[in-house]
Every structure is written in structure tokens, then in C-alpha cells.
């Protein structure tokens, strides 16, 4: 999946500038950086929610995702075989709970009740399935939004701080679910996070944004533990401890 070089400005001020990037199927990319560094803007541009300067969408091309689960798991996935592959699915930072039950909210993304039940069970939402989405807590709404976006296979999954409102136990379950989804569909995942330990747990690669620019990009082992750029080193020293594996 290629995302073209993009630039985004608001009222003449550039908030994001990023070169063309290529993302490999089956890999999980953590997008990290301080507040206001352009992480969410990049996610929104990649998802096609906002247009880059001069108009047009940021995504230029994509290939059909290849399953990296190692044969049997992919072949046996009736769900993946029988469902139309979406190009990009995106979970925004503030997902909207529509005026209907939790289960209906999840089924909005696809009519597969079996899949919805499995996702609700994994995220411990089964007992709340009939409850109105507006009555859910912040964490429950985030879990519902995650389940909703995982209803269909896609070429690229973009998640903007998917677990920031969840407790630790739910966040771990969500991470597990994202991992399973990546293995099963072979898509690439771009997830924005403030939680460095989560980025280290989940990501195969990392992008570090600073002051609206992509500062560093590479395998997470390198970027999140032994970065080359001083900006990344300062950030890691402050938030997550440098070089601590």
C-alpha cells in the first residue's frame, strides 16, 4: 500500500508534511510522536477523511492483501473468503455511537452476525449487545468502535488511538484482536498511539512524527529502542525510557 507524499495546511500554517510511504501487508506500523506532531492528521489523510493541499486523496495504490498467517489459518478463514475486501478501514479518535443498539452499531459495517458475536465476546461486550450505544461508557464505546471497524477485511486498517479510553485488560484484549485480524486478513495496520509500551508490544515498524514532519521511520526495534534522530531520542527518554527492552 502506497501513500503518496502529502502536505496539509490550515489557514496557511503547515501542520503535516510527509514523503511517499510504502506499507507492507501483514505488518503493524505504530505512529508515535508528541501532541500536535501531525499523527492524527496523517491518519485522517491516509483514510481519505480529509484531502491533502491542492485536493485529492493521499492513497495512490494498493495491492490485494496477502495473508501472513502461514497457510492453514488463511485458507480456513471462511469469513475472509466470503467477504468483499475493503480498501481502507479507519477508526477515528472519536468514533460516533449511532442512535441504535451496540449490536446494530457493529452490524452497520457488515451483516455477519456470527463475526459480530465473536468480536463482542472477545471484547467482553456480549452482555451489552442490546444496550443503546449512547448509554455506554467511554471505554465501552471505544471497544464497540473497534469491533465495528474489524467487521470486514481490508487492505489497510488505520486506528487512531484505539485503546486510549480502555482499561489495561481491555487494551490487551484489543491488541490481541488487532493482531489476529492482521494475521487473518494480511492487511497492513497503521495505528496512532501515545502509549510507547503498547507500540513496542504491537508494532513491527514505527513512524515518529515531530512538528508536523515524519522524523524517523523504520523497524520498531530500531526506532522505538535505539533511534537515530535526536528528536526521537529526547521523546523516548521523556516518555518511555531509551533502550529499555
Amino acid at each position: 500500500m502506497k501513500i503518496s507524499a502529502c502536505r496539509k495546511s490550515y489557514r496557511g500554517k503547515t501542520v503535516l508534511q510527509c514523503p511517499e510511504m510504502e506499507y507492507q501487508p501483514g505488518r503493524i506500523y505504530a505512529v508515535v510522536g508528541p501532541n500536535g506532531s501531525g499523527k492524527s492528521t496523517y491518519a485522517r489523510l491516509a483514510a481519505g477523511v480529509i484531502k491533502k493541499d491542492g485536493g485529492g486523496m493521499a492513497v495512490v495504490s494498493h495491492e490485494k492483501p496477502i495473508c501472513h498467517a502461514g497457510g492453514s489459518q488463511c485458507q480456513n478463514s471462511e469469513w475472509r473468503k466470503n467477504t468483499r475486501i475493503k480498501e481502507i478501514l479507519y477508526m477515528p479518535q472519536k468514533s460516533f455511537p449511532f442512535r441504535m443498539s451496540l449490536e446494530k452499531n457493529i452490524l452497520l459495517a457488515g451483516n455477519d452476525r456470527q463475526r459480530a458475536a465473536k468480536l463482542m465476546e472477545s471484547l467482553r461486550l456480549s452482555s451489552l449487545s442490546g444496550r443503546r450505544a449512547r448509554e455506554l461508557s467511554g471505554g465501552e464505546t471505544a471497544k464497540m468502535a473497534l469491533a465495528r471497524v474489524l467487521m470486514k477485511p481490508c487492505a489497510m486498517l488505520i486506528l487512531d488511538e484505539p485503546t486510549s479510553a480502555m482499561d489495561m485488560e481491555s487494551a490487551i484484549a484489543a491488541e490481541q484482536l488487532i493482531h489476529e485480524y492482521t494475521m487473518e486478513t494480511g492487511c497492513c495496520v497503521l495505528f496512532v498511539t501515545h502509549d510507547l509500551s503498547q507500540a513496542r508490544r504491537m508494532a513491527t515498524d514505527a513512524l515518529f512524527f515531530f512538528h508536523g514532519e515524519l522524523c524517523e521511520f523504520g523497524p520498531s526495534e530500531k526506532v522505538l529502542y535505539d533511534p537515530a534522530r535526536p528528536e526521537t531520542r529526547t521523546f523516548l527518554e521523556y516518555y518511555g525510557g531509551l533502550g529499555q527492552k
Binding site: 477523511v49 477508526m91 477515528p92 452497520l108 459495517a109
Partner: peptide, 15 residues
Amino acid sequence: AIAPLVQETSIGLGL
């Protein structure tokens, strides 16, 4: 007031 959130969520879900 609600359209930006609804549209962002809908685009994200490929609706």
C-alpha cells in the same frame, strides 16, 4: 454539529 463526526465514522467504515 454532528455531521463531521458522523461522516468521519462513516468514511472509516467504508459506508
